[in-house]
Design a protein around this nucleic acid. Sequence first.
DNA 1: CCAATAGTGTCTTTGAGACAGTATACC
DNA 2: GGTATACTGTCTCAAAGACACTATTGG
Lengths: 239, 239
Amino acid sequence: MSATRRTIGHKEPMSVTVDLVIFTIRDDVLQVLLVERGNEPFAGCWALPGGYMRSNETLDGAARRELYEETGVDVGRLHLEQLRAYGDPGRDPRGRVVTVAYLALGPDLPAPVAGTDARSARWTAVASALDSGMELAFDHAVILADALEGARRRLEYTTVAAAFCVEPFTVSELRRVYEIIWGFPLDPSNFRRKVTRTEGFLEATGERRMLESGRPAALYRRGGAEALVPPLLRHFSDG
Amino acid sequence: MSATRRTIGHKEPMSVTVDLVIFTIRDDVLQVLLVERGNEPFAGCWALPGGYMRSNETLDGAARRELYEETGVDVGRLHLEQLRAYGDPGRDPRGRVVTVAYLALGPDLPAPVAGTDARSARWTAVASALDSGMELAFDHAVILADALEGARRRLEYTTVAAAFCVEPFTVSELRRVYEIIWGFPLDPSNFRRKVTRTEGFLEATGERRMLESGRPAALYRRGGAEALVPPLLRHFSDG
DNA sequence: CCAATAGTGTCTTTGAGACAGTATACC
DNA sequence: GGTATACTGTCTCAAAGACACTATTGG
């Protein structure tokens, strides 16, 4: 055997894109930002926002840029996190495209800006995007399903649910986030005990908010903690 | 504003590679497979095994192929899972290379095969690879550190620790996996209760194994469960 | 008998589920 | 007062930590 150099196959021509799954809660429903494709392939189909990576940016940077272009929201206000890469041959009919999917979470985001970009974009209920006959372009239905399960898991093991709330927020608002994303009700009392006694989840502002009716609720900001230990598990057994 | 097509930046020339973090336990130490680079850049440095993706394979397929080339072990016997993508500009001096890192876990793997490939490869204690002045090529030190933390977390929330054991195995052997990877001892009694009472973690074979001394231990195979709920948390506080 | 490893039992503490009851607002 | 929402307290149960104790091998 000859002392060849590292077996590297070949540098196949490949493109790298970044796709965003941007979740927000609007009208008490989990929504995702979708854009309508104007060109082939999948012209007229809805797709996740995304685009080709540029030569001088990081993956996170490309995701941040795309996010800003789509929502006009500075990423400082949003939670942005890499999900995973997808690269099946045939996922894009134009050729080999590997995409890195990102999960972005934000509080009640504005209607998508049509300014920088003339293609139409709109918020869509995640349930509609997945369940109904709404065919998403490429493998975006798989990515969206993975992102939904990822978000649900993150609510269990991290404090990221607070990213869906406009600060300052109440414990009830935070509980609504869990209920909407998990799809079942939580016990208000036990939920309050969990989030208020977990060090670093919430930071009391001392203020209160009065609604039309009912006792005023204490207001909180996000605390410093990222992890939620022990986790707040969904119990799959009962309801 | 003109009705331009989707803003796609440009299809920048980019390469996609797959890098493997192959963990096994040898000599009661967590070890990772490293290869010595024969060419620039980083000639002479140690690096994670990996290579360019080919045009007709999936990401998982590329990882599986690399794994087989490096260890000669069929992937059926190993746990293989995507970790995440790394794509900072400058991570590879030759140009833009996005890599998708995979985590592979296996029981006491054989010495690396030098057959298919003349470069030298060897098992290295993870602690040495990270702590000491052993400089890894590219950003592989970061990838390795992420993989180690990922493996530690997976022991908490999944049943994947059993992937490090040769079937059939004993509860003590499984406990050793946790102790080696987490780096602190576990209570044998409580550990046994946890893993034997968790549905689907272990499957009793009915056999027993006799060592030189001591009572024979019951033997188990991996059960069907993937998730470990409730998790088996490391307690960071005490020891 | 002893040494060594495997395995059981049990007391205590922590934390979650269930849910009754109290507090503070507006009408 | 009544309704609505916020919050507290408490009982119970599940599961983990600590650790004593028994079981089965070989020498």
